[in-house]
Design a protein around this nucleic acid. Structure first.
Lengths: 288, 288
DNA sequence: CACCTTCGATAAGCAACGCTGATGGGCGCG
DNA sequence: CGCGCCCATCAGCGTTGCTTATCGAAGGTG
């Protein structure tokens, strides 16, 4: 189970061709064939069907392992190498769209920052592999509960803020006058489905036993203003942190009172931030 | 970053000796020396100090990565190989002490079961690497919230039961007459510290911002009856699922009403349970 | 203080591995 | 039906990676 073999295996599985994978990896087709044969012999089972080239059941299983495995491997080498090289001068920050509050923005230095917006699951990987020195992730949890990150590497996370969650309703909505809403009362409502903009509808549904939270309009962008406008226009409900939910024209933000959820944002970094990154961490954690 | 090199690196770091590691791995001392040299050259930094042999800063970092990495690697190969080999006849089940309720016990076949009690963090690894076909893990969470497992491999988990949580108090305790207790009121009490028996005091403290929940007696065993007896004798408070907390002589079980926590037990298995394991899964999930 | 033992580094030799290039066979497609 | 693409196999060769042998340094002992 040499990582090289795994690597060629995943690319062969991806492009569904030995020859194409060989070209992509800079090998000969022969070498790729031998790699796959070696893997299959090692594991004692065929991993791919030929003609057409497709993973077998065992191959599918191996694919599930191989991705994270190679990711961790890259993360490990990146992490160690990073300690050695000189601290970079610029700072690149990977963040989800909603993680960037005024407080976090204020903590950034005036110049030399690259901001990279990614999906929530991609941020730990980006930080681990050196694509960014710091990551900011947001999500919904119980108060003081840490978020769940895919663990690609030993990373350090800190909570940098929690904010109440509001339901954003059109002004004309029958529930718009309420002082607070319970999520249980909204199970049967129609919701916006906006995975890229940070509304984890699937998570809510799972917490509810797989029922309810039927999607109305699906929004594949990541822009929060658009999301709010959609909610205001009655295309479906959405949850937003209070700061983002207030002041939306035509909409009312009603605090969510049960279950007790907060919009939490966390800072994630690998081992030892250095240079500009360390300064930002200190400022965000008020260790100035 | 060949896994072989990593493997020898971790054993060298563990035994703090090149020669000893060589003996353990079945290599020559020379080979081990070359392995380490190769790693250091690859990463561009010394990983170990010689004489005495100890990891450098970069080496410590690498160690953090290497363990999980090798674990995942083993898990991957075990998982794929397992699909291929014939389904075993016996069934081995890895479980935490408190995960074994009457319901789970009833689901087991009459014969051929090996029960292996492990710490909570070890169970996913055991299941992933084939040390057990099934795992049962328990823990405290919000209702319907899944437990957090160290993710060594892509595993499937199901909730198999949730039970209210009680605080176990000596009969003479001033709060023993209450109908329900809030955790916030018990922050300053003295608690039993019983990590092996499933009381995650550190978790409670973390949820409380790192304050409170001072440990009184520390119990390093895993036996629940002893834990209950300790609580009854006034050595400290503890949380227990209701079934385990009722009927303890000299003690009163008072339900925990806030925060809303449940004692949840989950079934974890890798991909596709076969044979006896599949039957147990079906029975536990009431898919009979 | 000198000797000896132990430990890690290094050099040379050799076997095995892993890649390339060439060739063969099977399936799909025209 | 036959051509062509694609994967498997084989031979050849360079490189890698292990072993054996030897050295220098450090620590322990009489």
């Amino acid at each position: 189970m040499d990582p090289h073999l795994l690597r060629t295996y995943v690319t062969v599985a991806r492009v569904a061709s030995f020859s194409e994978a060989a070209r992509e990896l800079g090998y000969t087709q022969s070498a790729v064939s031998q790699h796959i044969a070696a893997l299959e012999q090692d594991l004692g089972a065929p991993l791919l069907t030929r003609r057409p080239v497709a993973p077998t059941a065992a191959g599918e299983r191996l694919l599930e392992h191989a991705g994270p495995l190679l990711l961790r491997l890259d993360a490990a080498r990146a992490d160690v190498v990073r300690m050695v090289g000189a601290p970079e001068h610029g700072l690149t920050l990977a963040a989800t769209p909603m993680a960037l509050g005024s407080r976090t923005l204020a903590a950034l230095p005036a110049a030399g920052v690259t901001l990279r917006v990614l999906a929530r699951e991609e941020i730990p990987a980006a930080v681990a592999q050196g694509g960014a020195e710091l990551g900011l992730v947001d999500g919904l949890t119980a108060p003081n509960d840490p978020l769940r990150h895919p663990d690609v590497a030993p990373l350090t996370t800190y909570g940098v803020g929690e904010e109440p969650v509001c339901v954003l309703l059109p002004e004309t909505h029958p529930l718009a006058r309420r002082d607070g809403l319970r999520l249980a009362d909204l199970v049967d409502a129609r919701w916006l489905d906006a995975p890229d903009a940070g509304l984890p509808l699937a998570q809510l549904r799972r917490a509810n036993g797989g029922e309810g939270f039927r999607p109305a309009l699906r929004y594949e962008g990541a822009d929060v203003r658009t999301l709010a406008a959609l909610a205001a226009a009655g295309h479906g409900l959405t949850l937003l942190p209070r700061a983002a939910a207030t002041g939306v024209p035509g909409a009312v933000a009603v605090p969510l009172v049960a279950p007790r959820l907060v919009h939490r944002t966390e800072l994630v970094h690998s081992g030892s931030p250095r240079g500009a990154a360390a300064a930002v961490v200190d400022r965000l954690l008020e260790r100035v």
